[in-house]
């Protein structure tokens, strides 16, 4: 047993405070989702209460919420699949080929990540209206793709670069064509990076609100974050249902985020801090 100095006590208290503050809003959301309306509206708020699953029963019986969760799942999965399908070949080309304009192309891919979504919201809305894509899941998938392709390309380029080029050379001597080299060597060997980038793409498109808000007005096509915010009207808000919906939205992405927590900074900074 080491000597317990005052520094160690301060350190422990500080870390405890970090854990408590970081988790508190999440805890408060989950706790509120388990409260009855009377407990929710108690002033001052109650910390000890008899938990109820009634709010969850309500939202699982509410077809709006369930349809919205399914829509989010569909949009996020399709976006992720497309981003990986389109992004990994591009990442391979950037990692292994030399060609003119490579640096410019790379800058352009990455700069898409820095563009504020609001800048494209109005143009995309106008265009979608013109070509009749308003109120479709497809338009959400396509627009989410523009913001998630750069992440997939960045993370996978990094990953593919770390694969020894000798493997590729010997496969080429064996007569493997370019597509097979990518498909049978780079994708399997780069799988950790591909998986991490896929999880990021899923988290970001799952969390997306702005475009779902402006491009979708049909109730049957709304995504989960939009439906959760739509509860916010009227005088007496159904806080229990709101927080239960919030929990249902946040829980899966939190689990995903914990899986990739080691790569969290890399994903959020696009590798700006190596």
């Amino acid at each position: 047993m080491r000597h317990v100095g005052p520094g160690r006590v301060v350190h422990a208290c500080g870390l405890l405070l970090v854990v408590v503050v970081a988790l508190f809003p999440f805890y408060w959301m989950v706790a509120s989702s388990l409260k009855q309306q009377t407990d929710l509206l108690a002033s001052p708020p109650v910390w000890l209460f008899t938990p109820t699953l009634a709010n969850y029963a309500d939202i699982f019986a509410d077809s709006h919420v369930m349809v919205a969760v399914l829509n989010s799942l569909l949009v996020a999965s399709c976006t992720t699949a497309l981003a990986v399908l389109i992004g990994t070949p591009a990442a391979y080309a950037l990692a292994r080929f030399e060609f003119r304009g490579k640096a410019d192309l790379w800058f352009w891919f990455i700069s898409n990540r820095f563009i504020s979504p609001i800048v494209l919201a109005l143009p995309v809305y106008l265009l979608a209206r013109q070509v009749g894509l308003l109120n479709t899941r497809l338009v959400l998938i396509l627009i989410d793709l523009t913001f998630n392709l750069p992440i997939v390309i960045w993370i996978c380029t990094d990953q593919f670069r770390s694969i020894p080029p000798d493997i590729e050379q010997s496969a080429r001597l064996e007569g493997a064509d370019q597509f097979n080299i990518f498909w049978r060597i780079y994708l399997p060997l780069g799988l950790p990076g591909v998986a991490v980038s896929a999880i990021f793409a899923f988290i970001f498109s799952w969390n997306e609100l702005l475009y779902s808000l402006v491009l979708i007005t049909s109730q049957a096509l709304k995504t989960a974050p939009v439906v959760a915010t739509n509860f916010m009207s009227g005088y007496e808000l159904p806080w229990g249902k709101i927080m239960a919906t919030g929990t249902v939205i946040v829980l899966p992405v939190t689990i995903f985020a914990l899986i990739v927590s080691r790569h969290m900074v890399r994903g959020l900074t696009m590798g700006a801090t190596k």
Partner: peptide, 18 residues
Amino acid sequence: RVALVVPLATTYAVVGLI
């Protein structure tokens, strides 16, 4: 370290609701 990941992953819209 694990706890710090939770705020980062929370859906922005839900942060607003909370």
